[in-house]
Design a protein around this nucleic acid. Sequence first.
DNA 1: CAAAAAAGCCAAAGCGCTTTGGAAGACTCT
DNA 2: AGAGTCTTCCAAAGCGCTTTGGCTTTTTTG
Lengths: 340, 340
Amino acid sequence: MNLKQLSHMLSLSQTTVSRALNGYPEVNEETRRRVMDAAKRHGYRPNPSARRLATGKSGMIGYVLPTGNAVDIDPHFVEFLSGLGDYARSHELDLVLSPADADDQETTYRRIVANRQVDAVYISSPRPADRRLALVSTLGIPFIVHGRSEGFDFDYPYLDIDNEGAFHEAARLLVQLGHKRLALINGDDRETFAIHRERGVRRALAASGLTLGERHVCSLTMTEENGYRAARRLLEQDEAPTAIVCSSLIMALGVVRAVRDLGRTIPGDLSLVAHDDVFPWLRPENFPVPLSTTRSSIRLAGARVAERLAARISGLEEGARGEVWPVDLVVRGSVAGAPV
Amino acid sequence: MNLKQLSHMLSLSQTTVSRALNGYPEVNEETRRRVMDAAKRHGYRPNPSARRLATGKSGMIGYVLPTGNAVDIDPHFVEFLSGLGDYARSHELDLVLSPADADDQETTYRRIVANRQVDAVYISSPRPADRRLALVSTLGIPFIVHGRSEGFDFDYPYLDIDNEGAFHEAARLLVQLGHKRLALINGDDRETFAIHRERGVRRALAASGLTLGERHVCSLTMTEENGYRAARRLLEQDEAPTAIVCSSLIMALGVVRAVRDLGRTIPGDLSLVAHDDVFPWLRPENFPVPLSTTRSSIRLAGARVAERLAARISGLEEGARGEVWPVDLVVRGSVAGAPV
DNA sequence: CAAAAAAGCCAAAGCGCTTTGGAAGACTCT
DNA sequence: AGAGTCTTCCAAAGCGCTTTGGCTTTTTTG
């Protein structure tokens, strides 16, 4: 059932039917009702390919997926996706993932924009002065950044959590508990979120006249193994930290294992706080010692990004509004006063 | 730069240019070279929307993503995606995720087929007599199943690993080591993979005159917490198992925690084997006691599925070929002879 | 009541590609 | 040399929608 057939059986022109369906004003309300009715009755759905060709709109949102043998997709991605999907579903928005060489995403961005494959894109895990932002801005496609970049002379729309604030709070708590030597096991410090987190920790320490020693900060991709290695390195040095703030639950698994291997205990010998993105399959309260966390649901963020993307597409949202979500600090058994 | 302009500057018809570009035979090789050359020089790329409308082909593969508040996307998905992306990237294939109400995916399948949004789809986590298979078959869109269904009177193309064989081997090893009471901590037993795994364990036990007790098999979604609960339940009963086969590394984390909480040890009191899908962020060799696993890279499976999907789209693959990959059994420290 | 404005509808021209049905010219064959 | 066959190219007709520009008809206005 296409427009031609439908309009023919209504004895109307395609123009009128199209306009009636798309809510244009220059059509009699009575006629509109007839059209709407017939459309529904016959299950008419405009052919998206045709509509696309005519309008240039695709009804999809895009994401450029960095791939390559050495590239692992972040497991956070799937949770983010859950949220995105939750919202997108209710609006019949599809998501197109365009795999790209991790070292040359620009080509892919240009392609999807030139091809008008998607109406908007989102960008995740931004770095300071991230080239994708500049690119996407000049290409002029609506977008939202999940996270933040830094060092641009222009604003852009983003959704981020207050990483600095979260880690500031976590560190402040530890300092208040008497810890003097904190360590940070961070994610890849080329990404802004990691930089912000480090900044938060430093600020909290500085407020008490403390500092984050060179050898007390690790920056690694977030795997269990890296968490283990980092913890071993930290705990086996002379001025071993008495508290660790850790950027991910997965790394925290490794930290816990290292602590055990070294015959130490949490929170007796070491206090531990980690960031929790809220995975259904790994919960901080189920750690051997319930883990204190800075918590922020990445899934909710996904839903919100989808919502804003939809708003931008339909012109409801404009400008470069940045949105920063506060982060909960959830105290559980893994923190205690500094050992004497 | 569109076809019209290009053909005009070559003083050729759109027909000829189009044919030259698409490799049709009825064009002089000399002419074809000229065209190809000019196209490259001017960076001409056919407009996908237009091509789509004309051909009905989209150059994308689809996946219907079940969503909903109570629905969690499997973390395996992201690894599978990595593999899919690896292949898709080199062929400029995009992946479109269509979020659907988990309880009504049919509508979405019908939509994406009717709209010709994608050239092929893949289906994952199939169940016995999975309705999606029947649906997609009748809708007539090329597809591949990752995993297997059962109980259909028709064949279909799939890629699966030898779950039964893998768990058979694992169980056989344990039996050979003298274990009489095995337990299985399985994934959701409405899914075929879980059924096959249980079958494998049962077969191995039967071969030695043993059975898998009713109370020795758990079937749960694969979270750390469920692994813990299952293990506690198993180990605290009278006829506690001396060996456990577990369907996922994440659940195995919970098992290890439970064992520890109960003051037991691996492999002294309990032997443990788990299935490893090969995540970069959680490796069996890094468990407190290196974990024996049945190993199969889900990422490679993703790449292979993409490859076969591409082949089906271009007509290179036909029929209902099923492909079953063998699974490695990797023995590490977590298994030992049965306690006396 | 005539002129101007508004309302309601339509034919046709795109959007940019593929593909059908020829047609002209070059080649082969008897 | 004329008929038949390839080879190589083209004009034009879709694909199914949106949108422009215009044409009636009705309503408003001075």
